[in-house]
Every structure is written in C-alpha cells, then in structure tokens.
Design a protein around this nucleic acid. Structure first.
Length: 477
DNA sequence: CTATGGCACGGATT
DNA sequence: AATCCGTGCCATAG
C-alpha cells in the first residue's frame, strides 16, 4: 500500500507516454537475467543514469543492508501457514541462488559479475590461458573470436589448422579445454558436444544415469525424436532406463550453455528440450520448513540502486551548451527506464499474488492439484490487458519449494493435472489398461476426455502403450 | 478384430 | 492473426 505512494508520485508527475508503454512491455517480456544485461547496456551508454552503491528496497524504498532482501517487506506478520509473503528482492548473487551448479564452476573465485563486464571470448580466455602454452593460446584466441551468438564454434577445423600450421589433434585438445570452462560447453560445434562437456563435468561430482553419455554421443537424433522404445532395443535395456537418462538430460543439461549468461533473446520455437537455470521467482517456505508461511521472492537484478545522476541534472540546468537537446533526451530515457523497471516489478508482484493464491495447493502438493486457469482470467481480475499477462509469463521461470525450476507457463497448463492423475492411475494399475479403460478411470474421477486424448497424454508423459506395458511391468503373467 | 498413432480440422487461447 | 489443444477419422500393426 505504501508502494502506491511511491509509484503514484512518478506516475502523476508524468503521464504515460507511448514510449513508456512500449518500454514497459519490453521489460516485462524479459527475464531477470535479460533485464540485468539491458541495465548494464543502458548504464554504459547513458551518462544520465547512475548506479549508486546503496541498496534500496524496490517496494518501500528503505535502505537495505549489503545482503539480503528488505527485512520489513519480507517479514511475515504471523506464522499462520495460510499467509504468503510477496516481495521484490534485489539480488546480485545471480549465479548461486538457483543451486543448479551446471553452469558455474567453483574453481574461479572471481567476482561473478566479472562475466557480465567482459565479453564472452575474454571471459573464457582468462580461464583457460593459465593451462595453455603460448602457441595454444593463439589457437584458443582464434576459436573464441569465431563463436556465433550462441557460443557455438563457427569456423571449420581445417581452417584453424591451416591458419596456425598445426594438426587437428592439437586444435582438438585446445577446444576440449575451452569447452570445460564456464559456461560449460562453450565453443562446441553442435549441441551434442555442449551437452557432453556438461555430462563430463557433472559425472565428476555426482551420479549420472547409465547410458547418458552414449545416448548423446551416438544416438542424439533418436533421442531428440523421443524414440525411447527403439533406443531401448538398441541398447538392450528397458525403456525406463532410457527415459531416466532422457529425463536427466532435460533436467540438468543445457543445450545452449552460452545463453545462460550471454546470449541474446532465445527463440521460443526450439524443439530441443528446455533447461532452466536462473529462476525469475523463488517460492519457498519460511526457513524452508514445510507448514510455515510461503515466501514469494521476485528477483530483480541489481548491484545497487539506479537513479538519475544529480550532477548531470545540475550541469544541464547551468550550462546552455548546444548539447542540451542530447542531454535532455538522455535524462528522459534514464528516468523512463527507472520508472519502467518499477512498473515491471509492480506488475510481476500483482501477478504472483493472484497466481499463488489460486495455485497454492499445486505449489505445495504437486501437479495433480493444478487448477485450470487461463491468462485471460488473471488479466480480468487484475484489470490489465491480456497481453500484459502473456508478456509477464512468457519465458519466466519459477523455483518451487521442492527446488524444481518450472516455466511460469506451467501454472496455466490445462492438462497437467489430468496427466498427473493419469500417471497415478497407470502406476497403480493391476493389469495393463488400454486407453479406453484409462478413459473410464478418469471419468470416475470426474474428468471426461476422449480416448484419443488419453493416447496423446500418454505420449506426452512418455508412457508406453498397454501391450508394451504388459511386457515391461507384468512380465510373463 | 482391437489398440494405437498420424493427420487434419475447429474452437479456444494468446 | 497466430498458435495451441482436444478430438474425430482412418490406416496399420499386432
């Protein structure tokens, strides 16, 4: 409520312009990682914008200690488990909070933000350089300057060899070392290579399911097409084993590692499995104790507080130079950005407030409890345009109390609950049921879907058809 | 003959 | 306007 004071001031002073709306839309569409990059770019080229080394709560404006969220806004008033606390949290420990570990190595204790100040080639070169001989460094430099926007190698091996008068073997060796840097898999020649680098790294510290490496290396095409039963035959193993590996791959590996910190906006039409590393929103129990109130933390990237540079403003007033027009523009742009970021935070907060209150039991108890919900419904309740909600949801990810990172769009999945229920039914079946039987079971739970739809859901969940399940589950019965 | 997957259509959603 | 999703119809494998 005090928030409205804070925001209202700005809004009444200068009414919405079309530029304002346009920028709010763009910012809303961005994930917190992308927002961070945008702010960095803007800081670099706009002298009117200033980053002061002082953290302030984005909601109430209070000064904050160097670490952590606003102690007032994030403080629950009661310990009532029905209470939820929502706050916008300025964070700079971008790499550590998601806990995924795939893209960040502990070895380099550099300031995590060194990566955002450097460009990708320099950042990677600094990591490998100590391990390389002088001639190898030149090769590494050539490799790193020939990366495409996704961090993939965009030059033929032959060309590198010719240029440096060296053997493919030597280039391979350098390439291999580079690929083991952060972001893991950078400079790969294809997705498979990037994934393999990550598998190798993960298998040092944790268990990786059987066949994972071989699947990526030898049968990536079939894997992408999800031909699990075929693969099972080739590897002479059960379909479950293959599915486990596939699941591991899509949950833990990132086909475009360089996008996590560097890449430009992602293409939504990828058919490659999506992987999420840096959530935009965290949901957890207070003190991580189930039963405690839920905490909703909306991440906004910051290393300090953005504001208009007061010196710059003063200089503008005093000096009547010919640059005045330019400077005026800079100031307008800077204040616009600041305002739009506030608006973005505000919208996200309102959205999450509704979303959590509707889907609370999904968050706590799992997939089966997801309420059917459309973006349009939320838009109506919040009295904003549908497209606003669409943008706010698009590309965002949420970390649930069980540490799973899911796309925010999952809150609007119409069939998730049904599919989860279907899973349950099939897991507890006494004999392999065909799709028609499953349909009947679902109907008993008050859900009526067509037989054909059951088949589709089964396929989505990677569950085998009845006659194959008979063999897998009820062997020779 | 039965169970399932492919294709395509239409309505809902974004 | 574009995309997603549930469904019906039909071919085919078992």
């Amino acid at each position: 409520m005090n928030l409205n004071h804070y925001q209202g001031q700005h809004q009444t002073q200068s009414p919405m312009t079309s530029a304002h709306i346009a920028q709010t839309m763009t910012l809303l569409y961005m994930t917190s990682t992308e927002l961070l990059q945008t702010i960095d770019v803007e800081l670099a080229k706009n002298p009117a914008l200033e980053l002061v080394n002082e953290r302030r709560c984005p909601m109430c404006g209070r000064k904050l200690p160097p670490q952590g969220p606003c102690p007032i806004c994030s403080q629950p008033k009661t310990m009532d488990p029905d209470e939820t606390i929502i706050f916008v949290s300025p964070r700079d420990d971008f790499y550590s909070y998601s806990g995924s570990g795939t893209t960040y190595r502990d070895e380099d204790h550099e300031d995590p933000f060194s990566s955002t100040n450097l460009d990708l080639p320099t950042y990677v070169l600094r990591q490998v350089a100590p391990e390389l001989e002088a001639d190898e460094r030149e090769i590494a430099a050539m490799i790193l300057t020939n990366l495409d926007e996704d961090g993939f190698l965009d030059v033929e091996m032959r060309e590198i060899c010719r240029f440096h008068h060296t053997t493919p073997g030597k280039v391979e060796a350098v390439l291999h070392k580079i690929q083991r840097c952060d972001p893991l898999g950078v400079s790969a020649r294809n997705i498979e290579e990037a994934l393999l680098a990550q598998v190798d790294f993960l298998s040092q510290s944790s268990e990786v399911p059987e066949f994972t490496r071989r699947l990526i290396a030898d049968d990536f095409e079939r894997l992408e097409k999800r031909q699990y039963s075929e693969l099972a035959k080739i590897y002479n193993t059960s379909v479950q084993t293959i599915q486990q590996a596939a699941r591991f791959i899509s949950e833990n590996l990132n086909p475009f590692p360089s996008r996590t910190n560097w890449g430009s906006f992602r293409q939504p039409n990828d058919n490659t499995p999506e992987v999420f590393h840096q959530p935009d929103i965290l949901i957890y129990y207070l003190d991580n104790k189930p039963g405690n109130p839920l905490i909703i933390e909306i991440i906004t990237p910051s290393r300090g507080t953005l504001r208009l540079n007061p010196l710059f403003k003063k200089a503008l007033k005093e000096q009547q130079g010919e640059n005045q027009e330019e400077w005026k523009k800079d100031i307008d742009k800077a204040s616009l950005l600041i305002k739009c970021i506030q608006q973005r935070n505000n919208t996200m907060r309102q959205l999450m407030e509704r979303l959590v209150s509707i889907q609370k039991s999904f968050i706590i108890h799992g997939d089966v409890h997801l309420e059917p919900l459309t973006r349009a419904q939320i838009a109506e309740e919040l009295e904003v345009h549908e497209s606003t909600i669409s943008r706010a949801v698009a590309n965002k990810t949420v970390q649930l109390p069980n540490k799973k990172i899911i796309p925010m769009a999952m809150f609007f999945d119409r069939s998730l609950a049904i599919r989860a229920l279907m899973r349950d039914i099939i897991e507890n079946e006494n004999s392999a049921m065909n799709d028609t039987d499953i349909r009947k079971q679902l109907q008993a739970h008050g859900i009526s879907v067509a037989r054909r739809t059951v088949a589709k859901y089964r396929a989505m969940e990677g569950i085998l058809p009845a006659h194959l399940r008979r063999i897998e589950k009820f062997a020779t019965a």
